Simulated scan of single mutants.
Amino acid sequence: MRPVNRSRILPALLGAAGALTALAGWQLAATAGPLAGAPLPSALEALGAAGRLLGTPPLWQATADTLVMALTGLLAAAVVGVLLGIAIGSSPLAMHATRVPLEFLKPIPPIVILPVVVLVLGPTAGMGTFLVFFGSFIAISVQSSAGVFDTDPVARATGASYGMGRAEILARIVIPSALPYIGTALRVAAPTSLVIAVVAGLLGGGPGLGQSLLMAQISGNQADLFGIVLILGALGLLIQGLSQWAERRLLHWHPQYRKAEIA
């Protein structure tokens, strides 16, 4: 029988305790605290609304639309960003030539180009997918190029001394060395893609949970509004957990993850 890993159970228990404490504080503030009588619903009302919404087909359709936009845009950003990053990182000239444009574009939020994208693509799922792509691929390409560029030159030289060609060195030395950088970029981009997909519906009129939030806000249904927020938070936790699990599985050979398994 596999022994229980206490180093994993304790953080989970602390996280659950923190969530329960936050909900209790919310309930107290909305019922007997400074926010009593305000439009803010209590935690129990929001949880009840979330449970009721989970039993309705429109909520599941909106969730599916949001996930399709987020995952499709993230997948496209991962493919384009990793390939571009490998191409840039493999050439010092390209690395230095593209550093300023990429660093200039990296902090620009997708919401800045939202009006233009809505004008061109309309309030569609394609608009949301493109915004997710734009908000993710630059960071992924920067991280990927940094991982390729930082590959140990001694390892490259050793591969060349054993008669490896450039393609073999890239496949067997450079890319494995850059995988931790790429994994980190994808793990950070995964929850970000969900946020951008929601913003596409909330501000751009696209389908999904963002549009559901907008409709609840317009109708003044505060309980449903915060119920959807709770559902989004749970969805974000799920995506973050899956991305961390996938990173650990793909990089199980890396010293950082081997130490975590031993602990």
Rank of each mutant, 00 (worst) to 15 (best):
residue 219 S to G: 14
residue 142 V to L: 13
residue 124 T to H: 08
residue 179 L to P: 03
residue 135 G to V: 03
residue 116 V to P: 05
residue 223 A to M: 07
residue 68 V to D: 01
residue 45 E to C: 01
residue 253 W to H: 14
residue 148 V to L: 03
residue 153 P to F: 05
residue 161 S to L: 06
residue 135 G to T: 13
residue 139 A to Q: 12
residue 183 G to Q: 09
residue 152 D to Y: 13
residue 156 R to V: 15
residue 174 V to N: 00
residue 164 M to N: 05
residue 229 V to K: 02
residue 87 A to N: 00
residue 86 I to Y: 05
residue 231 I to R: 00
residue 3 P to R: 15
residue 26 W to A: 10
residue 32 A to V: 13
residue 230 L to C: 01
residue 165 G to A: 08
residue 4 V to H: 12
residue 196 I to W: 10
residue 149 F to M: 10
residue 160 A to G: 09
residue 182 I to R: 07
residue 110 P to T: 07
residue 92 P to D: 08
residue 221 N to Q: 12
residue 234 A to W: 11
residue 106 K to E: 04
residue 156 R to F: 07
residue 29 A to C: 12
residue 176 P to D: 11
residue 262 I to M: 14
residue 69 M to I: 05
residue 67 L to D: 08
residue 103 E to H: 00
residue 108 I to P: 04
residue 59 L to K: 02
residue 262 I to Q: 15
residue 188 V to P: 00
residue 93 L to M: 02
residue 134 F to V: 07
residue 187 R to H: 04
residue 93 L to D: 03
residue 133 F to T: 10
residue 18 G to C: 04
residue 105 L to Y: 02
residue 140 I to W: 01
residue 11 P to N: 12
residue 27 Q to W: 02
residue 176 P to M: 14
residue 167 A to Y: 10
residue 148 V to A: 05
residue 162 Y to H: 13
residue 6 R to H: 13
residue 230 L to G: 00
residue 257 Y to L: 12
residue 221 N to W: 12
residue 182 I to D: 06
residue 87 A to L: 03
residue 171 A to V: 11
residue 133 F to R: 04
residue 224 D to K: 05
residue 111 I to N: 00
residue 155 A to S: 15
residue 243 S to A: 15
residue 138 I to A: 03
residue 169 I to A: 10
residue 158 T to M: 14
residue 35 L to D: 09
residue 246 A to L: 12
residue 257 Y to W: 14
residue 90 S to Y: 00
residue 51 G to C: 09
residue 46 A to V: 10
residue 99 R to F: 04
residue 54 L to K: 04
residue 83 L to V: 01
residue 136 S to N: 13
residue 49 A to G: 09
residue 16 A to C: 11
residue 116 V to M: 14
residue 58 P to Q: 03
residue 13 L to S: 13
residue 34 P to H: 05
residue 142 V to T: 09
residue 152 D to I: 11
residue 223 A to Q: 15
residue 198 V to C: 08
residue 106 K to H: 06
residue 62 A to M: 10
residue 132 V to H: 04
residue 167 A to K: 11
residue 210 G to D: 00
residue 15 G to Y: 10
residue 106 K to D: 02
residue 168 E to L: 06
residue 24 A to D: 06
residue 131 L to R: 10
residue 51 G to Q: 09
residue 165 G to C: 09
residue 210 G to P: 03
